[in-house]
Amino acid sequence: MDKKYIFGIFIALITFAGISAVLLNQVDSSNSGGSQEVNTSIPAEQSVNTSTNTSTSELKTVRHGYLPSNGDALIFIAKEEGFWTEEGLNVELYQFTKGTEGYNSLFGNKLDTVGAGTSDPATYIAQGADITIIGGLMSEGQFLVTAPENSKALADLNNWKGKKIATITMSNGDLIYKSALKKAGIDWKNDVTFLELGSPNAVLEAVKTGKADGGIIWIPYEILAQQQGLSIASYSYQYYDNHPCCRIALKTGTLNKDRNTYVKFEKGLIRAYKLFSENENKSVDDIQKYVKVDKEAIRQSTWSNYFYASPDPNTNGVKEYYQMMKDSGYIDTDVKIEDHIDNTVYKEALEELIAENPDDQFYQKLLSEYKEMNT
């Protein structure tokens, strides 16, 4: 048999298996964290946007690593609505399951940008990695889920002593709850047993089977958890209101060599945020192409009082978050996080949009928010 024919069948089977796994596991991925060092990034399905006829060969390619969570809503909208194409970029989306996978791909030059929780880039920066945060994607959106009979008790952190809590290392929720335990006078390293798992679905399974008393997850898994008979015991905002979550980061050298490309990248995200804020139905349609849950679950989880989307880098929030990581014993470092944040990329993108749309009040509002969160 022809070797090329055999190879084609092999590739087709791998592709089918990958797609089937996504559908069967819905959005089985990690917002950040994990211990695997092997990159398993997969190119996302490339949707065709008919709003532009620009050939991809004429565009600057940016390889972006994402997690299939509605926390990455702005990424999906920017892609599906053709905003990046209109800015002269061909943004290729690569799905990964854990934050470390995304950053391993970044350090291995397989990705140009990564969108994952604040704990991921902050931890790597604390360890000496030369990466820069240029923008944001979301805030809040983390939870503790339990069996219904344990919900009331575990809503009180004082009752966590001696308990087993399933978590994903380096996820935002992992840090938020450990910091809250420290503030409550509980030694989270010794008084609580944390089961470090590889995905939110694994966390839910551990709670359902009684292997863990509670589990720390993020959107949209709170909806899936409740559909499976679990309860939400507490929300991350109860311990840190409006805390930053997923940030856009890249190698500092990459940014320095081609700054204009990433200004355009941020312009696409800002335009996506405008549509997200003004057209909920279209946003849901765009998000569902990457987050395999039903539309109402996406809607309920995304337009809620415990999740906020924003492309603003939120320098002040990231600095506060980083200090909290140090205070809680999560990291030990003398590296300053502010040396690894360039909020002027976002500012330049926003100013270009204001110049192009001088009467648009939405962009003017974002500029006011930028001054509050980054100075």
Rank of each mutant, 00 (worst) to 15 (best):
Y262T: 02
E205S: 14
A206L: 00
L181W: 07
Y5W: 09
I186T: 04
E356H: 06
L137F: 13
Y262P: 03
Y321M: 09
D241T: 07
Q361E: 15
D187T: 02
E369K: 12
D286R: 01
G253I: 00
A116N: 15
L67T: 15
E101A: 05
S30R: 04
Y306A: 01
G210A: 05
E278T: 14
R259F: 14
Q127S: 15
L111Q: 14
D312S: 08
P244F: 10
L230P: 06
I219G: 01
I270E: 02
D334H: 09
V263H: 12
G88T: 02
I168T: 06
G65K: 00
K292G: 00
V203L: 06
S310E: 05
W218V: 11
Y363G: 06
S179C: 03
Y221G: 00
I42H: 12
S199I: 01
D187F: 05
Q361L: 07
I186Y: 14
S179L: 05
K4A: 08
L250H: 09
Q46H: 11
I14F: 13
Y124V: 00
I9F: 12
E266N: 08
Y94H: 12
K365C: 04
T113Q: 07
M325L: 13
A126D: 05
N49L: 02
D334Q: 13
Y177V: 09
K164M: 03
G173K: 04
I168S: 03
D2K: 04
Y103R: 04
G8P: 00
D28A: 12
G317L: 03
N242C: 05
K282V: 08
D332M: 00
M373Y: 13
K257E: 15
A17N: 10
K163L: 05
S119L: 03
P200N: 14
L74I: 02
D359N: 14
D342S: 02
D174T: 01
L350S: 02
Q226S: 06
T333N: 07
K3Y: 11
T315I: 00
Y321N: 01
A122W: 06
K178Y: 08
Q323T: 10
M138V: 13
S301D: 02
D339Y: 02
Q364K: 13
E149P: 01
Q300M: 07
N357P: 07
A155D: 11
S310I: 03
T261L: 03
A129D: 09
Q364M: 08
K164Q: 11
V62I: 15
I131G: 10
V48E: 12
K292L: 14
I125P: 11
A21I: 05
N25Q: 03
H340I: 04
V284N: 08
Q127H: 12
L106P: 11
Q26A: 09
N242V: 09
A233D: 04
M1V: 10
F307I: 04
W84D: 05
Y262Q: 03
P220Q: 07
E149C: 03
S151I: 04
V192A: 11
N90T: 00
L59V: 02
F362H: 06
H340F: 11
L154D: 11
N201V: 01
G88N: 09
N31S: 14
V48F: 14
N242F: 12
A147H: 11
G128W: 11
V22F: 10
E101V: 01
V114P: 08
K4M: 12
A12I: 08
S277D: 09
C246P: 08
E222T: 03
A309M: 13
Y124G: 07
